[in-house]
Design a binder for these strands. Structure first.
Ligand SMILES: [Mn+2]
Ligand SMILES: [Mn+2]
Ligand SMILES: [Zn+2]
Ligand SMILES: [Zn+2]
Lengths: 149, 149
DNA sequence: TTCTTAAATAAGAATAATTCTTATTTAAGT
DNA sequence: ACTTAAATAAGAATTATTCTTATTTAAGAA
């Protein structure tokens, strides 16, 4: 971990090196993000900011968060895209998700099945599911990238 | 694993024991689900079924998939709800997600950090993220359940 | 088999999350 | 101060999901 002033400093440098503009909106969104431990949604950040900065638009918050992920100062918590994905496979297994095409493959691995829940977690949560979630780019999508200009 | 006829048999029994009606819609949706390896969305299942059964409604597919999860013949692939969740914490860590209130807590665990990617996965994917995703009910939500009639 | 009824469905409206379009503004380099 | 590409605001559009209500039906009872 790192103190917030330092993170903001690094954020400003990152904007520089990545060649994106340091706007008041971006700074506010970044501050809101690192001051929160709740993994906020775009809407949540928008609501907090709208008090200090009433003219900001929700779309800007969405765009900015995406930009932050791209330049590596934020991440989107693991998930599988906009729509719920279902399966009838009730065997214990894990997943690898192609973030490009959305494909989900099943992963069977004995080590993954044996993961223990840390005591500080099991004290606070009744755990219903333990899954290793891998994210990456599938071979097909990698090939498609290669063939792009 | 298990052959599909047997799964359908068990599905019918499950409807019995859970006291829910065995409708043609439910049977079709279940068959579609277990014949797919792609972790389909409701929309995807709806499209496939609509050919054989043109009067089915998308809402029925949604409701049915939820019912299937409730009676334990299907699951929803791991995710964090409808909206994207962001964070500025770029340290390597994992998550536990309360499926009731949506809260996400950070989990730091050295064992989790050391997970290896199975070779058959790394052959097919360029892995960008490895995360242990725990799901459960937080203490607060458990207490709230207790106080319900 | 026919009857009964609560459960389930279809259809479309409503809501929620996200993305797109376009005119306007602005950060940052000159 | 000037220039300009990038960024923003506003609102429309799109997509996913849920809700409402009238109708239909599965399944147990008679
Ligand atoms: Mn799976
Ligand atoms: Mn986190
Ligand atoms: Zn892919
Ligand atoms: Zn909770």
């Amino acid at each position: 971990m790192m103190n917030k002033e330092r993170k903001i400093e690094l954020f400003k440098e990152k904007c520089q090196t990545k060649g994106i503009k340091l706007t008041p909106q971006r700074l506010l969104i970044y501050e809101e993000l690192i001051n929160s431990t709740e993994h906020p949604t775009a809407e949540r950040i928008y609501s907090s900011i709208t008090q200090k900065f009433p003219t900001i638009s929700l779309d800007t918050v969405h765009r900015t968060l995406e930009t932050f992920c791209t330049i590596g100062v934020a991440t989107m918590a693991e998930g599988l895209g906009n729509s719920k994905r279902f399966e009838g496979n009730m065997d214990n297994h894990h997943h690898v998700h192609c973030v490009q095409c959305g494909m989900i493959h099943d992963v069977y691995d004995a080590n993954y099945d044996q993961l223990l829940v840390p005591p500080q977690v099991s004290q606070e949560f009744k755990i219903l599911k333990k899954i290793v979630h891998l994210e990456g780019i599938c071979r097909k999508c990698q090939t498609e990238y290669e063939n792009m200009d």
